[in-house]
Design a protein around this nucleic acid. Structure first.
Length: 950
RNA sequence: GCUCAAGUGGCGGAAUUGGUAGACGCGUCGGAUUCAAAAUCCGAUUCUUCGGAGUGCGGGUUCGAUUCCCGCCUUGAGUACCA
């Protein structure tokens, strides 16, 4: 009987589905283990071979843990809100829900055919109302919370209101907006409702505020910082502008320190932690207040170098700084205005691209040095960013290269405050090994001491204090799009009101088009039934909306709903908690307390590193928030995280000679001028030869080549190859479907692992797949011969057991270390050895199946059942390693001369050091190698090596 | 510029506390089987002037370095005027 993988794989996939083999239970005697993949966005193109890489790895681990006796939760779902479905809807008019459903079906079929052990009964879709009901609920909880710096956690807003009512806000230590005015309890109690709500909005963890946002005109929406790559939108590569808009924001900055500290408690790669550290961008220093001559206003700056305060020779404000217009003198006004206009015109991208050009303008105003009281000229310059710190810096040209360059360019003085340091060529930015000079009371001190002293003296003056700054900005949470979660928010008198939990979800309304309205409102502005009836608690027609100015007695209680939707990261920031609860029980709460306490957090998370500063940071933020409010019990969502490397495509090129319709085989190009053109990789074989007929018959592009001439070399057309990102536009996408059909899912699984270390990026090249496929055939033949089963009850030989236990040891170590590529080699070696040993012993061959099962589950199930076993192999115990089978009686010693191995000598293991040396030195090969020389030294490491020196 | 990875045969890669560099697979070459092909099986395959040399380059530590230390080069990823 032959290895019919298609039949076998279909059979077992059906068996697993019918028997719910991988359904996890929330009550179990076994220890729990939660393995999670970053869930996919179901795009129209379907899966390519790069997507399953991480899924295969996590599936191997999940299956391994089941063999090891764990209750494993290994769920899957879809991040199904998002831009591509909406863009497609705009083009075709099809409802995004319809295309999303179709795409999910394709994904599911593709995932099923690879044989993953997912518990599909817990599937999550971010776009389903049952799910986003809870996304809306979490949003409400954030709105109803503030961050108390005293308790260092989020608390219910009611506790803040209580403080306001009893003692005002003077002693409140909260994370809030900068522009908070101090008020008394009496004042608070006399504020009207709207005034109180306005104040509370400055404290809430999600808040509505006018902020500078990244506006992408092409996509018609704002974007978060992590959605912008190199100054253009991550999706589509469109330009992004700065724009002031009223938007929902998340006060993630409140969690900056905890997000930073928490990194030390989790098992993630260093590079990933480093990305998050950089993104959070903590810097410790001081805030310093400079008085402005002839003005009431003061300039506040943040500096990491308070020790260099006597080196300040000018101040620089961001052109957008609000004081600029007030302090600029009439003589300088024209120059300053021109400069501001010029910088406003430059896009973010231009500014970034051209860092070298120094520009700025003098305001004509002077600040006063806090200690020396000397006047300091105030400049504006675009190297100071409005969005970081206070948008103003104290410029110390001798200690900061940018200040130095600016001073040189505009001929500003560069006082030297470092003892014995030459600053004629460049600034001295290092903190160590230098003493401060020309700095009054700081003279002779080092960085640490001078900083401390400067802060102390500034505090005495009331002009500064120690301060820690973070680069992490609050995250914009509104999107002007249709295909996202609607906010559970309506507006009374311009103030946002939350809809009660009992009436969630607020489902997406129908619209006739998915574009912004003619007046520039988001697509939800097109909905006719999009108003909230506060009396009947339901969504009603917009026609019923009455102005909130109307007197209460006359008012029908209908108000307009929020028109923005939530960003893509909303649904993905908590989905891992949803999986913890069985679908039927996700009603009263997003997950029961029992479920949350049982599964705690994700033990192993596998996904791409592109989510380093987006999803992975936001998820940590929401988890910490939910923990603070006691909705979940854990501080971190993902205990261990592994990034799988990207699978790259191997693009194929044909070469058209310029000005002709002739295509040259790669070897014929020589000096000719040619244009390389991508061709679909499926028309190219493993030897880089193009199938010209198929290319000419291609439905999409065949017509382009109908009359083309192809010049061959040695009878074939050779294409050029190049490794690039796998992408539709490069025609190098390989779908797993064809591989599964031709070689089977087990071959695909093994091959993806065999390609190399999981974390490394690697090009996809199908050439080697015959190797692993051949291995599966050999494995099959070891069990099943032409006339039926080969396996017998004969006792295992010593060699059989040695091979088996060597394999158990290696595979177990490999899985624990996520070194799946080496396991595949180990299996090959084991099968080669057992075949050579003509092993038929069930005692060896049955445990071997449990080792193979996580990697190639279908063939393992089939052979396991052919051996006469009932049920699935999935929970069979992992074979136990027994070291006694590996004990050797002799060792083939490598004999090295000066560290270089020349030959080996077989010697018994129980020889002493001296006996080994004696045996080696008297060996004729040693004597021949030494050619009469006397060795200076002989190193003998019993059981390892002999090294002869001299 | 800064941060983090990584450089090993024709190719993907292995070598888990410093101890036989190149496991395993692909490809290539030779052979068996076959009328022939596919499939299958067997053998060879780092380079070499046959002394040796050799893990990006140059040093160092060590009896011994792909592995540890110092300096450089290259490639990839992330980040970008962060005061």
């Amino acid at each position: 009987m032959q290895y019919h993988f298609n039949t076998i794989e279909a059979k077992w996939q059906k068996y697993w589905a019918e028997n719910q083999t991988f359904k996890a239970s929330n009550t179990s005697e076994k220890p729990k283990y939660y393995v999670l993949d970053m869930f996919p966005y179901p795009s129209g193109a379907g899966l390519h071979v790069g997507h399953p890489l991480g899924y295969i790895a996590s599936d191997i681990y999940a299956r391994y843990k089941r063999h090891k006796g764990f209750n494993v939760l290994h769920p899957q779902g879809y991040d199904s809100f998002g831009l591509p479905a909406e863009q497609y809807a705009i083009q075709t008019g099809q409802h995004p829900a319809v295309t999303t459903e179709t795409n999910i079906k394709t994904y599911r079929r593709q995932l099923d055919q690879i044989g993953f052990s997912f518990d599909w009964s817990r599937e999550v879709r971010t776009s389903s109302p049952e799910y986003y009901k809870w996304t809306q609920w979490i949003f409400i909880q954030l709105f109803e919370s503030w961050y108390n710096n005293e308790s260092n956690k989020a608390e219910e807003i009611s506790s803040l209101i209580a403080v306001f009512a009893s003692e005002g806000n003077a002693n409140v230590n909260a994370v809030c907006d900068d522009n908070i005015e101090v008020f008394t309890a009496e004042a608070w109690n006399n504020f009207n409702q709207k005034e109180q709500e306005e104040i509370l909005l400055k404290y809430r963890l999600t808040y509505l505020a006018e902020t500078e946002v990244n506006w992408c005109p092409a996509l018609g929406t704002v974007l978060a910082n992590d959605e912008i790559v190199n100054g253009v939108s991550e999706r589509g590569g469109h330009p992004v502008l700065r724009k002031k808009m009223t938007q929902w924001s998340m006060r993630i900055s409140a969690y900056a320190e905890r997000l930073l500290q928490g990194l030390d408690t989790i098992d993630w790669t260093d590079s990933l932690k480093e990305s998050q550290r950089n993104w959070i961008g903590k810097s410790v220093g001081a805030s310093v207040t400079f008085n402005v001559n002839n003005h009431e206003e003061v300039i506040e700056v943040f500096t990491t170098r308070p020790d260099t305060i006597f080196g300040v020779s000018f101040m620089t404000l961001a052109p957008e700084h609000e004081l600029v217009s007030q302090i600029t003198t009439p003589e300088q006004k024209a120059e300053v205005d021109a400069y501001i206009l010029a910088t406003a015109k430059r896009s973010e991208r231009d500014r970034m691209a051209d860092v070298k050009t120094i520009s700025g303008a003098f305001t004509g105003a002077y600040a006063e040095h806090p200690f020396s009281k000397e006047p300091i000229p105030i400049w504006i310059g675009d190297y100071v960013l409005a969005g970081y710190g206070t948008g103003a810096v104290m410029s110390v040209p001798c200690g900061d290269q940018r200040d130095y360059d600016f001073a040189k360019h505009f001929n500003i003085a560069i006082p030297n405050i470092f003892e014995g340091v030459d600053i004629s060529e460049e600034a001295y930015a290092a903190k160590d090994n230098v003493k401060i000079a020309n700095s009054d009371f700081l003279n002779g001190m080092n960085y640490k001491k001078a900083s401390k002293r400067a802060i102390y003296d500034l505090e005495q003056l009331g002009q500064g204090e120690g301060k820690t700054n973070y680069r992490l900005r609050d995250a914009v949470f509104s999107r002007q799009r249709y295909w996202g979660e609607p906010f559970p928010v309506y507006y009374v008198n311009g103030m946002p009101q939350m809809i009660d939990k009992a009436h969630l979800p607020i489902t997406l309304p129908e619209v006739e088009k998915y574009l912004p309205t003619e007046t520039g409102e988001p697509p939800l502005g097109r909905a006719d039934v999009w108003a909230w009836d506060t009396v009947n608690n339901k969504v009603v027609s917009n026609d019923l909306v009455m102005s909130s100015e109307v007197e209460t007695s006359q008012h029908n209680g209908v108000f307009p709903l929020e028109l923005n939707t939530m960003p893509g990261w909303a649904g993905s920031s908590w989905y891992f908690f949803s999986y913890m609860e069985e679908k039927a029980k996700r009603g009263e709460d997003f997950a029961s307390e029992d479920a949350l306490n049982y599964w705690e957090n994700v033990d192993l998370y596998i996904g791409g590193s592109e989510h380093a500063t987006g999803h992975l940071l936001y998820s940590r933020f929401w988890t910490k928030f939910l923990k603070d409010r006691a909705f979940v019990g854990v501080e971190e969502p993902f205990k261990k995280l592994i990034n799988q490397g990207m699978i790259l495509g191997t693009s194929a090129f044909i070469y058209r000679e310029d000005g002709t319709n002739t295509y040259l085989s790669q070897g014929l190009i020589k000096d000719k001028k040619v244009a390389p053109i991508h061709v679909k990789v499926q028309y190219v074989n493993a030897s880089d030869e193009l199938d010209i007929e198929s290319l000419k018959n291609d439905a999409e592009f065949g017509a382009d080549y109908k009359d083309a001439e192809f010049l061959l070399e040695n009878g074939v057309y050779k294409v050029g190859r190049e490794v690039e990102k796998m992408s539709k536009s490069k025609y190098n996408v390989v779908s797993p479907d064809a591989i599964c059909e031709q070689y089977g899912a087990d071959s695909l699984r093994l091959y993806e692992m065999f390609l190399g270390p999981l974390e490394q990026a690697k090009p996809w090249n199908t050439a080697g797949i015959t190797g692993v496929h051949g291995f599966l055939k050999k494995l099959w033949k070891l069990y099943v011969g032409e006339n039926g089963l080969n396996v017998t009850d004969v006792a295992a030989t010593k060699d059989n057991l040695k091979t088996l236990h060597k394999t158990i040891k290696k595979v177990e170590e490999d899985i624990e270390n996520f070194s799946f590529n080496t396991s595949v080699s180990t299996f090959m070696i084991a099968v080669n050895e057992l075949t050579a040993q003509k092993c038929t012993s069930k005692e060896v061959l049955e445990p071997l199946l449990a080792l193979v099962s996580p990697y190639a589950p279908h063939i393992a199930e089939e052979l396991y059942s052919q051996l006469g076993n009932e049920g699935s192999i999935a929970t069979v115990a992992f074979p136990k390693f027994d070291a006694s089978h590996l004990v050797e009686s002799s060792k083939n010693y490598p004999i090295s001369f000066n560290g270089k191995m020349r030959f080996t000598i077989e010697l018994p293991m129980d020889l002493s050091k001296d006996e080994i040396e004696k045996a080696v030195m008297s060996n004729e090969k040693t004597i021949a190698q030494l050619e009469g020389r006397t060795p200076k030294k002989v190193i003998v490491v019993p059981g390892k090596i002999v090294n002869i020196v001299g």
